[in-house]
Simulated assay, not measured.
Amino acid sequence: MSSHTHNGPRPSASTRAAAQACLARMAARRSGAAHQARESPAAMARGLARTLLAEAGDASHLSLVKGPGADDVPDAGLAAAWPLRFGGAEPGHEKPLLYFLRASAASALRAACWETQDRGIILNLAETTPSRWTKGVMPDVPVWLNAYLPCTPYDPASADEARAILRGALQALYVDGDAGCCYLTLHGDDAGADPLSEPDAQAAWRGMYRIGPASADARIRLCGAGKALSRVIQAAGWLRRDWGIDSEIWSCPSYTRLARDAGAADRWNGLNPLMTPRTSHLDACLNGDARPVLAVTDYHQPIAGQIGAHVRAPFVAVGADSQAREHARPADAQWLVAMALRMLG
């Protein structure tokens, strides 16, 4: 789902109408209850599914699959996406697809993508249950997601981030006609985040947005994805309190999208040197100055590290394997403070 190409199936008028009906229902649900910004991403997605299915007529606007392990998702009558491939839908009509599952292995995600023909929005609830693996998935899952180009993976930190990404996916796939599918890992913790402004919601869909206003006094930029963001914010507080160091904080729901779009912009600029250069979202966010950048993920380090080639500043990535490679675990706030101080010398 590149910001520069729209090479998917051309949506029919009925497909666009179905997606717009879902988007309108999402907007009504958000405006109707201010407390919903305090939900977890998983609770928001389940509640949204109930809302869409409960409204009269919305079954004609949405296909919802309750896949393996998604026991707490509303029963929509579909346990797999195969009937959608071989059913008798009118030619050219494609309803928006939400596919809930709880999958810890890449093989299960590959099967879901095969079922859906690499279309739709896949919502993985694996992070909501205890697991020996960080984020509830085996280490090969983020590697496969990163390498599988038809799928754009996201790791939202809050309910409002997840809602913004779902809105962006519905618009891109079923209104604009972008190719591919969208993947979200949904955790069950209430991030306690404030509601996103509309510009921040659009920036979250593109891969990252700044939390709070820009600060000329900030000496380092701290980036976090998913549940790691709360520890990034905690580390920023300790840096300020104990060391007098101000930080700029960025939420990065998709390091993979940032890296893919930055790479695509670099390739286009290299092939078209006489044209106006394209600027990626990552470039616009981080490449205005040379302050160090510390990027954090609860996956293994290379997932955050993939943006490093496109950051024109001192850069360090931290992942679940950064503190103890034998027993991967999320980097704690103290470790992030130590890494930030080391970068600042």
Rank of each mutant, 00 (worst) to 15 (best):
C22V: 09
C22N: 09
C22W: 00
C22I: 10
C22A: 11
C22Y: 01
L23G: 05
L23Q: 11
L23M: 10
A24H: 07
A24W: 01
R25C: 12
R25F: 01
R25K: 11
M26W: 01
M26Q: 13
A27M: 04
A27Q: 14
A27F: 00
A27T: 12
A27G: 11
A28M: 06
A28R: 12
R29D: 08
R29V: 11
R29I: 06
R29N: 04
R29S: 07
R29K: 03
R29C: 04
R30I: 07
R30Q: 10
S31I: 04
S31H: 06
G32C: 05
G32K: 06
A33C: 13
A33R: 14
A33V: 09
A33Q: 14
A33M: 11
A34I: 01
A34G: 00
H35P: 00
H35L: 09
Q36A: 08
Q36C: 08
Q36K: 13
Q36R: 15
Q36F: 09
Q36V: 07
Q36T: 15
A37E: 03
A37Y: 02
A37H: 13
A37N: 07
A37S: 14
A37G: 01
R38A: 09
R38F: 09
R38G: 09
R38Y: 12
R38Q: 13
R38W: 08
R38T: 07
R38K: 08
R38C: 03
R38N: 11
R38I: 01
E39V: 01
S40E: 10
S40T: 12
S40I: 02
S40A: 14
S40C: 08
P41W: 02
P41T: 04
A42D: 14
A42E: 15
A42Q: 15
A43F: 02
A43C: 07
M44W: 15
M44K: 10
M44Y: 14
A45T: 10
R46K: 11
R46P: 00
R46E: 09
R46C: 08
R46G: 02
R46F: 01
G47K: 06
G47Q: 15
G47R: 15
G47P: 12
G47I: 13
L48F: 10
L48H: 07
L48M: 15
L48Y: 05
L48Q: 13
A49H: 02
A49S: 14
A49N: 09
A49T: 13
A49C: 15
A49F: 02
A49G: 14
R50A: 13
R50L: 08
R50G: 12
T51V: 12
T51G: 15
T51I: 03
T51C: 12
L52E: 05
L52Q: 04
L53G: 12
L53I: 09
L53K: 09
A54I: 00
A54Y: 00
A54K: 06
A54L: 04
A54S: 12
